[in-house]
Design a protein around this nucleic acid. Sequence first.
DNA 1: TTAGCTTATTTCATTGAGTGAAAAAAGATT
DNA 2: AATCTTTTTTCACTCAATGAAATAAGCTAA
Lengths: 399, 399
Amino acid sequence: MSTFVRGNKDLIKAINRNLILNTVRRHGALSRTQLTEISRLSVGAVSQITQELIKDAWLLEVGEGDYTGGRRQTLLRLNPDAGCAIGLKLMEHRIVCALTDLEAKVLRYQDLPMPVDHDPMVIVTALTEAVETTVNASGVDRRKLLGVGVGVAGVTYPQTGIVHYSPYLGWHDLPLAELMRVRLHLPVYIENDVNTLTLSEQLFGAGRHIENFVVVTIGRGIGMGMVINHQLYQGAKGGMGELGHITFDAAGPMCSCGKHGCLEAFAADPAVIAYVRHSRSAEDAPRTLEDVISLAQAGDALAKAALRRSGEILGIGLSTIVNLLCPSLIIVSGEGVVAGEFRIAPMMDALRAHTFNGLLDDVQVIVEATDDHAWARGSASLVMGKLFESPLIEAGIAV
Amino acid sequence: MSTFVRGNKDLIKAINRNLILNTVRRHGALSRTQLTEISRLSVGAVSQITQELIKDAWLLEVGEGDYTGGRRQTLLRLNPDAGCAIGLKLMEHRIVCALTDLEAKVLRYQDLPMPVDHDPMVIVTALTEAVETTVNASGVDRRKLLGVGVGVAGVTYPQTGIVHYSPYLGWHDLPLAELMRVRLHLPVYIENDVNTLTLSEQLFGAGRHIENFVVVTIGRGIGMGMVINHQLYQGAKGGMGELGHITFDAAGPMCSCGKHGCLEAFAADPAVIAYVRHSRSAEDAPRTLEDVISLAQAGDALAKAALRRSGEILGIGLSTIVNLLCPSLIIVSGEGVVAGEFRIAPMMDALRAHTFNGLLDDVQVIVEATDDHAWARGSASLVMGKLFESPLIEAGIAV
DNA sequence: TTAGCTTATTTCATTGAGTGAAAAAAGATT
DNA sequence: AATCTTTTTTCACTCAATGAAATAAGCTAA
C-alpha cells in the first residue's frame, strides 16, 4: 500500500535541505552563490539552510574561490568527519568489514573467517564483534558511527531488515537487522549484495546522475541490480534481478536452482571450469577460473573455447536486458570480469549481435572488476543511501 | 540531465491539489471528512482545496452519505464533464479514433481507413479530420476537449512529440505532435502504442494502485510496457520493451528485424500461422490466427501443436520478465490472447516451469484480450495521464 | 414543534519556509 | 583610505498548511 506525498512546510524544508546537501556532495565544493544557481533556490533560502547545515556539522567552510572582482566566495563542502559507516559483506567463507567515511572511502578494513557453525546467533556475534574491533582499531570516535550496512547474497527484505533466504548460510526469514541493532545500538540496514554494489555505483560511481542503469555481476553466480528513475528498484517482496536464472535453453541441463537451462548454468564461473574439467584428466584439470585463464593464456584451445562460450552467452543475457529495459548505462562487474580478451570481448560481440536495431546506440557499457573492498564499500553505501535519500522517497512517492 | 525537486509554496499547493484530485478519482466518491483521513491533510486544507476544485469545475458535489449520528457528509466526485479527450491509434490499415470522458469512457467512436499514401502530410490531414468529425458528431462542446493522444507502433520520443520510427508507416523522426498541434490548437501527446495501453491500465485498469507492473501484448508482434515505482518507464531515448526481440534461440531463423532467433519469430501470430501453413497444401492452409484456432478446435493436431509451442515460448518470455523484474502484476493482452486452452494454458505452465524459486508467488498474472476500443482508450489516457500526473514528475524527480 | 445531540464543514489566527530587495561584509585595486 | 565589485546576510512580505473554535446541518426524542 503506497502512501501519497502530502505537502507542508516540513516537507519543503526537508526537500531543500536534502537538495543542498546532495548538490554539495556531488559537486565536491561549492559556494553559496553557486548553490543558489544550481539549486534554483533563493539566496535567502540557501543562506539559511547552509547556516543550519554548518551548525549541524554536515557542511564545512573550506577556503575561498578565485578572485572575480569582488568579495571571494566561501567554498562549502561535505564534512567528511560528519560521520562514518560500517559495511559488512557476508561471503561464503569470510566476513568482510570496512569502516568508511561519508564518501565511502575505506578508513579501516578487516577480513574474518566465517564461522563454520552457521547458527544465526554465532554469526551475529561474529558480525557485531567485527564491527566493534574495526571501529576500535580505527581510532574513530564511535559516536560518529551512523550505521551499519550488511550485504548478503540471496533474497532480503530491506524494509523489515529480514534475510528471507541466504543460499550460503542456509538462513530463512532471519531478522538479522534487528538482532544486530539491539546489540550495537545503531541503525542496521540489510540488502542483497548486488543491490549494495548498485547503490554504491549510484552514490559514488559511474551511476551518478544516471536516471536508469543496471549493474550485472559475474562470478560464481550471475546477478543484477537496477536503478530506475533514480531509485534502486526492489521487485515484489524483494525478489528480482535473477539474471542468472533466466532460461537460456529450455532443453539444457539442470541448474542448481532446480530449473533447466538457466543462463548461469552455461555462463557463470563454475560452468566455465566444468567445461574444461570434463575433457581432461584429473591431474591437470583446472580448479578455479584463474586456472582456466592461465591455460587460455598458455594457448589452450579448450580453455579459450570455454571462456569464449561463456562470454557469448553472457552477451546474450546482456542483450536481453537492453532489449527489455534499454538503460542508459550497464556496469558489468563482479569477480568474473577478468579474462578480458577471452571472455569479455566475445561478450561484447554477442551483445551487439543480439540487440534490437539501434537500441544499443544509447547504451553505455562499462566493464569493471570487483574486489572485496568494493563489496564492503557497497554495504556501507546503504548507510549513506539512507542519509542522502530524498525525503520524497521516505514519504513514498506515489503518482 | 535531471532537474532536482525544489520545494516552495507553489509545489506544496500543486502536490496537495493533485493529491485530492487523484484521491477522489480513485475512490469514486468521497466526503471532505474522508478526504481528510485518506490524504492526511488538515481539515482546513481539504476545505480550501476542494472549494477551489469545485469552483474550477473539477469536482462536483453529488448527494450525501449515510446518516452516522450528525450532519451528513457531502459526497464529492470527479466531474466527468470537466473535459474530454481524443485517442487516436494508428494501425497498419486503419485509423481508430475515440472521444472519451475523463474516466476514459468512450463517448464516440470512429474507424477510418489509413490512407494508402503514407506521406506524413496526407496522414496528418486524415488524423486532424478524424478528430474534428468525431468531436462534431459527438455533440460535445469542442472547448471541453483537453487534448489528443496518439498511439503509434514503433519508437517515439514523447517529450518532443516525435515519431522516431514507425515500421508500418515508414516514418523517421516525424514531429507528429507539433504538426497536429498547430492544426488543432490543442495539446497533442505521442506514445508507443503498448505504452498507451500500459498507461490506461495504470489509470483505469488492473494497474491502479500497483507500484510495479508490466503489460505484455501478443499479436503480430510481441510488445511490453512497464510501470515502475508508479511511473511509466521510458528507457534511454524511448527505446525499451522489445520483448519480441529478445533472443530465444541464437541458432534460430532470421527475424524480420534482421537478428537471429528472436522470441517473436517463434511465438507471435505470424509464426503460428507459418508453422501450420508449411505443412499443408495451399488450399486448406490457414491464413489468419482465427483459421488456426478453428483448425485446433476441430481437433487438428498440427494447429494445436503450433498454438501450444507458441504458448510455451511466450511463457519462457514471461518467465524472463519475472526473473529479472518480478513485478507484482503482469497483464497479458493484445489481439493474440484468444486461444485460451490451446495457447494460454501452455504459456502459464511454461511460465511456472521457468521462473526462479518462489518468485512467481508474489506475481499476479491477468490475461485479457484487447480490442480496438482498448487501444483508442489507451491513446486517450495520454491526456488524462498528463492531467492527473504528479507535479513531482513534471518537476523531475531526482534523488 | 423544538431542544438537544452528533457530526461535517468552514473560518480564522498562527506558524514558518521561501522570496527577493536592501543592507552589510569582504576583499582587491587605485 | 576611498572606491568598486561580488558575496553573503538580513528582513519585511507572502502564502499554504495547521488545528482549534465557530458554524452548519441533519436526526432523535420529548
